[in-house]
């Protein structure tokens, strides 16, 4: 791999990345994907580096993905979770940050329920910060792995991402996945469409460079790919939706709807899926689903992120 100077200390969101940087990150991930298919899935790229996985909000998939990614690069990983004592004892995020800093990690991966928590941490510590999801704000590695998945899907068909349309459907208002994807996908040349019931469409969405649809049927029509968002069940309790069965009835992505999309259009979902609520059971298991490709891409993309941040001074790449 040629030496590409990586100017960023942190990955807080995708809007800090230039198009060339995003493409380089995806290219780097592609090389790591190859490592993931080897019998010995480990390279010494981050040997001696420490990565703290600070997950103050529950997460199994993202945390495991980062953990595997770090270990395959030979970094040492340390976990701090929601139920660990300092957090349950009411330590402020500032003090947690300073405590983590004192342990001299090279990279801190943070997942937090509050928007802006990753940037708060970044202001407090010298370590590189990777935002693994903060509130409703950003989830850059999810957007990058989604971009990776789609890029590969279309490349395998000798197509490019340029000009393709991607529909994001579901609870856009409360979705960091949607926010980061809208930024990254539009930067990479896709046309992003969104559809959400009006209570789940954020006020001000017209500021986004997206097409907003008021009917799911119209939104799906001729879409080149569809990304379904997870519906948090607490939205119903918050009075944003009537009974969930109505959501399933009116807004669930089904095979019938996908028949309106461009032929062969794939379906993505950040997981975990609520089958039968936002995505039909049979559709989730169909050949259109790229959900498992996304999971697999997640490890490669996170390896790329950790590698680029962890080696940005030395610039060395493992043979």
């Amino acid at each position: 791999m040629e030496n590409f100077p990586w100017p960023h200390k942190d990955l807080l969101d995708v809007d800090g990345l230039s198009i060339a940087e995003s493409q380089h990150l995806l290219d780097t991930a592609e090389q790591f994907q190859e490592i993931n298919s080897r019998a010995v899935k480990k390279v010494p790229a981050l040997r001696g580096k420490g990565v703290i996985l600070f997950f103050a909000e529950n997460s199994t998939r993202t945390k495991t993905s980062f953990d595997i990614a770090a270990k395959r690069l030979s970094a040492d990983t340390f976990s701090l979770g929601k139920n660990d004592s300092s957090l349950t004892k009411g330590e402020s995020l500032k003090d947690t940050a300073l405590t983590l800093q004192a342990m001299s990690p090279d990279i801190i991966v943070i997942r937090h329920a509050l928007s802006g928590a990753a940037s708060f941490l970044s202001d407090k510590v010298d370590s590189s910060i990777v935002n693994a999801g903060d509130g409703w704000h950003a989830h850059p590695t999810q957007a990058l792995l989604d971009a990776y998945t789609l890029r590969k899907y279309w490349r395998d068909k000798n197509q490019t991402m340029q000009g393709k349309s991607l529909l994001i459907v579901g609870d856009v208002a409360h979705s960091r996945v949607a926010r980061s994807n809208i930024k990254l996908m539009t930067a990479l040349g896709l046309q992003v469409r969104i559809f959400a019931p009006k209570t789940l469409l954020p006020k001000g969405a017209e500021h986004w460079p997206v097409q907003i649809f008021d009917s799911l049927d119209k939104a799906v029509r001729d879409a080149d790919a569809v990304m379904c968002l997870r519906l948090q069940l607490e939205r119903q309790a918050a009075g944003l939706l009537p009974h969930l069965s109505e959501y399933a009835e009116k807004f669930c992505l089904t095979r019938r709807l996908m028949d309106l999309a461009a032929p062969g259009a794939p379906v993505l979902h950040p997981g975990p899926m609520n089958r039968g609520l936002e995505v039909a059971d049979d559709l989730a298991d169909s050949s259109a689903s790229l959900v498992l490709d996304q999971v697999s891409a997640g490890v490669a993309v996170r390896m790329a992120v950790l590698f680029l941040l962890g080696t940005r001074k030395s610039g060395a790449f493992p043979a």
């Binding site: 928007s115 903060d134 409703w136 704000h137 950003a138 926010r179 001000g204 969405a205």
Partner: peptide, 18 residues
């Protein structure tokens, strides 16, 4: 609420007050 609802809440992911 944390912020005005609109461009600010959209950008930051903070809960808006209209």
């Amino acid at each position: 609420w944390q912020i005005n609802e609109g461009g600010g809440s959209l950008h930051t992911g903070l809960k808006g007050q209209p």
